[in-house]
């Protein structure tokens, strides 16, 4: 092996703004496309669940055959949860393999690696949402939304995806290994079942109703339902946005602390 470092290119003193973000977003998008398992998990599982709920439980829950219209907003959130959960694993993996430590010893904004994972999750989940809505339309979902309402609904879904992705990223950093991140993430995936996603909260026993009505997923679902199918949703959109923004702020702060604390510890 000769002339290993012959004529090495010289690096600029300062990186152009956004170089790290662009690099890591490209990286995470490649991961998304190559990680077939999590891609399947993000799309196929919610579609299967939707078919299960509509065709197996649907008639029992709602004999008029319109259960699909009720359940689609819940399925969209469930889908976002599955799709975002792999972010926790990805982040934990970067931490466990030493990839993050390598970045920390370089003159770059290393925390941008999280941004890369988050943006990829957003793209992946919006695509999965589109597929879920497509399948839903094919099996009888009949939204009444105007273009404006569609835009608002999609914006809210995007906000929810960001929220849960940042939360998973923080969990991934805190847990430090992919298996643990996966385990903790499972708890979050359970939340939609304890909300108005599949049945109206009025039908739940009192104590469970308290949980369901005061957790962040119910107002998000109610808002999307309101926007897409014209059901009265009251102040749900405000509550939903407040929850999401609050959780994002907390999760970003938590990630920042964890990101610093984990330096050099594997």
């Amino acid at each position: 092996m000769t002339a290993l470092i012959a004529a090495p290119p010289s690096a600029p003193a300062r990186l152009p703004l956004g170089t790290e973000e662009r690099t890591f977003i490209a990286r995470s998008m490649r991961h998304t496309v190559r990680n077939v398992e999590s891609l399947l998990m993000a799309v196929v599982l919610p579609v299967m669940l939707m078919l299960l709920f509509v065709y197996v439980f649907g008639t029992a829950i709602s004999p008029d055959g319109q259960y699909v219209t009720y359940v689609v907003p819940g399925i969209i959130l469930l889908c976002a949860g599955f799709g975002a959960s792999s972010t926790g694993v990805d982040v934990a993996n970067d931490s466990a393999t030493g990839f993050m430590d390598r970045l920390r010893t370089m003159p770059v904004r290393s925390s941008a690696v999280i941004t890369g994972h988050v943006v990829a999750s957003l793209a992946r989940n919006l695509a999965a949402t589109a597929i879920v809505i497509g399948v839903a339309l094919a099996i009888g979902f009949r939204p009444t939304a105007t273009v404006g309402e569609w835009v608002a609904a999609i914006a809210l879904v995007a906000l929810y995806i960001l929220t849960i992705t940042y939360l998973f990223a923080a969990i991934g950093l805190a847990s430090g290994n992919p298996e643990a991140a996966n385990g903790y993430g499972f708890i979050l995936l359970f939340l939609p079942y304890l909300s108005s996603a599949f049945v109206p909260t009025e039908t739940l026993p009192n104590w469970l109703r308290g949980v369901a009505e005061h957790q962040p997923i119910t107002p998000v679902i109610e808002s999307i339902r309101g926007l897409l199918t014209g059901v009265e949703s009251g102040n749900a959109p405000l509550v939903a946005v407040a929850w999401c923004v609050g959780i994002i702020v907390a999760a970003v702060a938590w990630s920042t602390i964890m990101f610093r604390r984990k330096a050099g510890r594997r």
Binding site: H31, T97, G98, R102, T105
Partner: peptide, 11 residues
């Protein structure tokens, strides 16, 4: 720094 575990991107 090249650390103890190979910090390469597997995918």
């Amino acid at each position: 720094l090249t650390g103890q575990s190979a910090a390469v991107d597997e995918l």
